[in-house]
Simulated assay, not measured.
Amino acid sequence: MNPVLRNTLAVIVGIIIGSIVNMSIILISGSIIPPPDGCNNTTMKGLQESMHLFEAKHFLLPFLAHAIGTFTGAVTTALLAVNHKKKLALLIGAFFLLCGIVSVSSMPSPTWFTLIDLIFAYIPTAYLALRLTCRKF
């Protein structure tokens, strides 16, 4: 298979796998740490209006979803790519970082969570993924 085509497919598959992992964790997070009483998290408006009820524990699983989703996407891409594995794994981190920026822009969250999420959940986990999957660094 053409290396450019295979690398492109590796990125696409990495984005899909990372997104599936991210959304799976988000979807089960409410059953692990229930939302606060009076919170309507079924709509974006309801979530925005009840954000002030959330405690620090409610932000743990969203952070883990972002970090683990990015990690699995970067690992998948690095394993499937023919060459430029490091660049492509970091590209996955940058893609998910962009999605994270869009997310925090559209939904209010505490400043501390926004900073921790954007600084530690995306590029560092993509870097960790490429360190674990690429022999030479």
Results as ranks from 00 to 15, higher is better:
19 S>V: 06
69 G>A: 05
125 T>Y: 10
51 M>Q: 12
50 S>Y: 00
43 T>I: 02
66 H>I: 01
98 L>P: 00
14 G>R: 08
62 P>V: 07
4 V>Y: 14
39 C>Y: 14
101 I>N: 05
72 T>E: 03
121 A>C: 09
121 A>L: 08
62 P>Q: 05
56 A>T: 15
109 S>M: 11
12 I>R: 05
88 L>V: 04
23 M>F: 14
41 N>G: 15
130 L>G: 00
8 T>V: 10
137 F>M: 12
71 F>C: 01
45 K>T: 14
73 G>T: 06
105 S>N: 14
99 C>D: 08
77 T>H: 02
43 T>W: 03
19 S>L: 13
101 I>T: 08
14 G>K: 07
137 F>R: 12
8 T>Y: 10
66 H>F: 11
84 H>A: 07
137 F>V: 07
87 K>R: 10
44 M>N: 10
35 P>H: 13
45 K>D: 13
8 T>E: 00
40 N>P: 05
68 I>V: 11
72 T>I: 13
21 V>K: 02
24 S>Y: 01
46 G>P: 02
29 S>Y: 05
14 G>D: 09
41 N>E: 09
84 H>C: 03
88 L>K: 09
108 P>S: 01
55 E>R: 13
9 L>C: 06
3 P>S: 13
24 S>Q: 02
129 A>V: 10
95 F>C: 08
51 M>E: 11
31 S>Y: 12
127 Y>I: 07
5 L>M: 11
14 G>Q: 05
6 R>K: 15
108 P>A: 05
